[in-house]
Amino acid sequence: MADLSITASSVLPGAGAITEDGISGATITAGQAVYKAADGTWALADADSATALARDAKGIALNGASAGQPIKVQKGGELTVNAVLTAGTTYYLSGTAGGICPLADVGTGEYYDIIAIAKSTTNLKLLFGYSGVSA
């Protein structure tokens, strides 16, 4: 398998959504995993980043933005992504900046960072959990 193929226009907050408004520190597309950088902006999380902060995803972008533009991030609750999900499967941050993948695709040297569990074939229950342990 590979990273989830998320249609940006289909990313929608669901039941119990916890969101935060902020400023983008990079070019971000709706549906990508993000972290809060040291300067307070949101940037793309990456499981094999040399920076520990970047390996700890804290949300999913609900809209696209370029650096310096407003962004809304979902930090908890349910999220519709309209990707092909397998209900009951746990999804992790991938080694592709902003990417989300199943456990089987967490590669050597990448850190385990749980993003969500699929509640259905299109909905995720966000459960961010950084392990600090690499594959």
Rank of each mutant, 00 (worst) to 15 (best):
P70V: 05
K119P: 06
V73E: 04
S49A: 15
T121V: 13
G14A: 14
I18L: 04
I71D: 01
N123C: 09
L127P: 06
K58H: 01
A47V: 09
T121G: 04
G76W: 01
T29K: 05
A8Q: 14
D105N: 13
I71N: 00
S9F: 08
I6M: 12
I117M: 01
G88A: 05
G77K: 04
N82I: 00
D21Q: 11
T121E: 14
T80M: 00
D46Y: 12
K36V: 03
A30Q: 08
K125W: 14
I114H: 11
Y35P: 03
L93Y: 10
T86M: 05
L103T: 10
K119W: 01
E110D: 14
T27Y: 12
A45F: 00
G31M: 08
G95C: 02
Y92S: 05
G14S: 14
E20S: 13
G68F: 12
T7V: 13
E20P: 04
W42G: 02
E78R: 06
A61N: 05
A118P: 07
I60A: 01
V81C: 06
G77A: 02
L127N: 09
I100M: 04
G14Q: 13
K119I: 09
S134T: 06
A135R: 14
G31V: 09
R55H: 05
W42D: 07
T19C: 13
T89A: 03
M1I: 11
A61H: 11
D105E: 13
I60R: 03
A61D: 06
A15F: 10
G31E: 02
L4V: 12
K58G: 11
K72Y: 00
D3W: 06
T122M: 02
A43P: 00
Y111F: 10
T19Q: 06
L62Q: 06
T86W: 02
L124H: 04
G77L: 03
L85R: 05
Y35K: 03
W42N: 04
A54S: 14
G31Y: 01
K72A: 03
G132V: 15
Q32D: 02
L103W: 12
G107P: 03
G76S: 08
Q32N: 00
Y130V: 08
G98W: 00
A33K: 07
S24I: 13
G25M: 07
S120T: 15
A65S: 06
N123Q: 15
T96C: 03
Q69V: 03
P13A: 12
A17T: 12
G98Q: 00
D56V: 07
L4T: 10
G59F: 00
N123S: 10
E20C: 09
G25K: 08
G109Q: 14
S131L: 05
A135D: 15
N123M: 13
S66H: 11
K125I: 15
A47R: 08
A33P: 09
S24D: 10
V84N: 04
T86D: 06
Q69E: 15
A104Y: 09
K36P: 04
L4A: 15
A57G: 06
T51I: 06
T29Y: 00
A87Q: 08
Y35L: 02
V81R: 00
V106K: 09
G64K: 04
A43M: 08
L93M: 13
R55L: 05
L44C: 11
A67Y: 00
A50V: 15
K58N: 01
T90W: 04
A116N: 12
P13R: 06
I18N: 03
S120H: 11
